[in-house]
Design a protein around this nucleic acid. Structure first.
Length: 801
DNA sequence: TCTCTCGACTCAGAAACTTTTAG
DNA sequence: CCTAAAAGTTTCTGAGTCGAGAG
């Protein structure tokens, strides 16, 4: 790879290596196009060096994003107080928190149980049956509420129990722990052979496989109706690996498996489906019992003791064997991922800690006591020889610390970013090709939030990032648009056509000259060289810091811009504003998801619903015409109205009304039947049939009237014009809301918000925003996020990124 | 020096599972 | 109120980034 890479870069490399005469390959066309190109080399480099120095002493105070500490005025005190009552937790105040929280917790949890049984005696008059039902319901409701409250209490307790590392002064970071105890890893249960009647078929004959080869066959059978089974690479990798297993574990009924096409895995697939259905059919209680049992077995593995504190372990379950599911065009997808055994695993544990015993036969590969790393166990996976680790959970102190450090580093960039931008803007015109390329790459990383883009091997999917972009990935569209179209991380397509600065456009044009589609755009830049340069500009700065910085600063800015709208907003409105900002960041970072399978369908549903609302609105308008046509004319523009509702024609109305009528008739009948059932159960006489008949007749008459109104532009009024106006108003709002919901939903169908929320948005932005706008943070952060970000929860409402 | 490889960590979307909402 | 579907959350594990050290 490296060799090939070098070989393809001839023209540009010559240009640069020539150093003094670097110019020579460039020429001609563009020389006259950009005059600024001939700044002498010395001049181009010198100011940069000066600038660099200046940067290291952070004397530069003139950055733009200045809205720091005092920017936002305190939000209304009143609100803060009034909503504080339910969470006594949070207003414990910063000072006494440490001691008091723990104690308070205990007390609360103790005296919380007794106050439950209170509803017991209720008037026993009226209908005893009804009374019973009512009682039961109330109890259930109480129960639910109690559970909810308990859950919240528990959560708060857990929160109170976390080690408040962010209040300590942090020191040396190279040592990650002093003592470390843990239970090792949890191996999945051994393979259980299929029941004897479940067999795959080869060339029309059932195959009697021994467990080892049957297991691998089952891995594939389970995927029969997924995309994987349609993939040639996947199939051939699977088949090759399975044949190897079959070599040592051949069918017991001496069938020779040779051709993939002759394999029929369907019976096994069907068996799996049945098992799945059985599992799904279990009652809630049964499922719960199973889960409890599992949790009990796993409990010892779920926590470790680090420096004397109990903390959660992340992925202590060893990955079960299966078929490797690489993303995109991964050449190894479908390969057999073998069962991991104790012999594969190295444990990292404290010197004085007891060595755990594996939960399956075998001995650990090795035991080490390296406290400069954070992992508890590691092994090398057989498909790509990649290292796998067991780490602590996201909410642990170790992870929390580095997470916070990441955001602090990104915030530090605020103080440098202006200078850095200035520098690379100058370097965009550098005579030194390497510098010019680097500056251009930095421009993309900064403006477009591209990833660094390391080199990749032959045995991986062909994806790229900034530094590894190839000519085929960027298309120039004069005067200044660059079209990016490439597969990035996880083979997710990045497509964007930003207008760029003229110099950047020119540069890319130069970089692409005399190269083939498959040649790198930046042949003189590597992620290592780029990061080295960035580190010179700011200690600890790397390409990925820009992504964090840009995501968070964008988010903060967007939220700040919406501040006005938030003043009197309802909760859903606030939520919408927050999510809109979140979405914009996700788009910047190109975080995608597969559109939900049911998306189109649910869009159609919404559209239909809105049309129904518009029908209702039309009827109301027609009522108004009948009641007070002057008022109507005053309020509505006939043209507009007809325009928007042009799809509501008489045919559609007829269909719709027929449908409505049918539904209503059915509803009435159902209700009648149900009422009678109930009465029968209560020993009462059934309602007379004519009750129903009258009702049905009424409905029919109503719809007959509607049918008559069709096309007249008028409708029978109910109530006065005033009332109709009010109803109309409400309906308008409802329609607008539904429409906006629909368009938001559609816009967001392929955008994944979660990735940025978890990894890129400084949680303190959210916490401060929630405090300032009187929103419960738990509405914006799921439980896991809450436990992931304990360090962010105490910022003031005016905190800014 | 510079490049290459290894190791350890963050970040990524899909799948599985759970809770909420709609009908 | 009950069920089914949708929405939301958590788990899973693959795919990146990037520093360090060897050659």
């Amino acid at each position: 790879m490296p060799g090939a890479h070098e070989a393809t870069t001839v023209p540009a490399s010559k240009a640069v290596n020539g150093n003094g005469k670097a110019k020579k390959s460039k020429p001609t066309v563009k020389a006259e196009a950009d005059d600024d190109d001939d700044i002498p080399l010395a001049a181009a480099t010198k100011p940069k060096r000066v600038a660099k120095k200046a940067k290291i002493e952070p004397e530069s105070d003139e950055e733009v994003p200045k809205p720091k500490r005092k920017a936002a005025p305190r939000k209304s005190k009143v609100k803060e107080e009034s909503d504080a009552d339910h969470d006594s937790e949070e207003d414990g105040g910063p000072k006494k928190r440490k001691r008091s929280t723990k104690r308070a917790k205990k007390e609360e949890s103790e005296d919380e149980v007794p106050d439950v049984p209170k509803k017991k005696r209720v008037k026993k008059e009226e209908d005893p049956e009804k009374e019973k039902i009512r009682l039961r319901k109330e109890k259930e409701k109480e129960e639910r509420e109690r559970k909810k409250a308990e859950k919240i209490k528990k959560e708060e307790e857990e929160a109170a129990a976390v080690f408040r590392w962010w209040e300590q002064d942090k020191k040396d970071n190279s040592q990650k722990w002093t003592t470390l105890e843990h239970q090792g890893v949890y191996f999945p249960p051994p393979y259980e052979p299929l029941p004897p009647n479940v067999k795959m078929i080869y060339d029309g004959k059932t195959v009697d496989l021994p467990p080892d080869s049957e297991e691998v066959m089952g891995f594939y059978a389970a995927l029969l109706e997924t995309e994987h089974a349609q993939d040639e690479t996947f199939n051939s990798n699977f088949f090759a690996d399975w044949l190897k297993v079959l070599g040592t574990h051949p069918p017991r009924n001496s069938i020779k498996i040779k051709a993939f096409d002759k394999c029929d895995f369907r019976p096994v697939f069907q068996y799996f489906e049945e098992e799945k259905a059985k599992k799904k059919a279990l009652t809630t209680a049964e499922k719960k019992a199973l889960k409890e049992e599992r949790d009990k077995i796993e409990a010892p593995y779920a926590f470790c003791i680090i420096d004397g504190r109990k903390e959660k372990v992340g992925n202590f379950r060893i990955e079960p064997p299966g078929l490797f599911r690489g993303r995109g065009e991964h050449p190894r997808k479908g390969a057999l991922k073998q069962r991991v055994r104790p012999e594969d695993i190295t444990l990292n544990i404290g010197k004085d800690s007891a060595i755990p015993k594996p939960n399956m036969p075998g001995k650990w590969k090795a035991i080490q006591h390296d406290n400069t790393v954070t992992w508890l166990a590691n092994w090398i996976e057989n498909v790509n020889q990649s290292h796998k680790y067991v780490f602590l959970a996201a909410g642990s102190s170790l992870k929390g610390q580095s997470d916070m450090a990441k955001f602090e580093k990104a915030r530090e960039l605020k103080d440098y970013v202006d200078q850095i931008r200035e520098d690379y803007t100058v370097e965009l015109k550098s005579k030194v090709m390497a510098e010019r390329q680097r500056a251009t790459a930095m421009y993309f990383i900064d403006k477009l939030a591209l990833r660094a883009g390391n080199e990749k091997g032959e045995d991986e999917a062909d994806t790229v990032g900034c530094c590894s972009l190839r000519c085929e990935h960027v298309t120039l569209e004069p005067p200044n648009v660059i079209i990016f179209d490439f597969l990035g991380k996880d083979s997710i397509r990045y497509y964007n056509n930003p207008a760029v600065e003229g110099q950047v456009f020119k540069n890319v044009k130069i970089f692409k000259e005399n190269k083939d589609e498959g040649d790198p755009v930046f042949d003189r830049v590597t992620t290592a060289s780029l990061n080295k340069h960035l580190n010179n500009q700011m200690k600890g700065l790397t390409a990925k810091v820009f992504r964090t910085y840009n995501a968070s600063i964008t988010f903060q800015t967007l939220l700040d811009e919406q501040q006005e709208k938030l003043k009197n907003a309802t909760f859903p409105e606030k939520m919408a504003i927050y999510n809109a900002a979140n979405r914009q960041v996700a788009i910047l970072c190109n975080h995608q998801r597969a559109a939900p399978k049911t998306h189109d369908q649910s869009m159609e549903k919404m559209r239909f619903k809105i049309k129904g609302l518009r029908y209702d609105r039309m009827k109301l308008r027609h009522q108004l015409v009948a009641l007070d046509s002057k008022q109507y004319k005053k309020r509505f523009d006939k043209e507009d109205e007809e325009d928007e509702d042009s799809d509501i024609d008489d045919d559609w109305i007829e269909d719709y009304e027929t449908q409505l009528e049918k539904v209503e008739l059915e509803k009435a009948m159902k209700k009648f039947a149900k009422d009678n059932e109930k009465r029968a159960a209560d020993g009462q006489e059934a309602l007379p049939q004519e009750d129903l008949d009258t009702k049905l007749e009424g409905i029919k008459t109503h719809f007959a009237e509607l049918a008559k109104e069709r096309g007249t532009g008028k409708a029978k009024g109910r109530g006065d014009a005033e009332k109709v106006m009010t109803a109309l108003q409400k309906l308008e709002e409802k329609i607008a809301l539904q429409k906006s919901n629909m368009s938001e939903k559609d816009k967001g169908k392929e955008v994944a918000l979660s990735t940025s929320k978890i990894n890129y948005l400084d949680p303190r932005i959210t916490v401060a925003w929630c405090k300032a706008n009187d929103v419960d943070v738990r509405k914006m952060f799921s439980k896991t996020l809450m436990t992931k970000f304990p360090w962010a929860m105490e910022v003031e409402d005016d905190w800014k990124f």
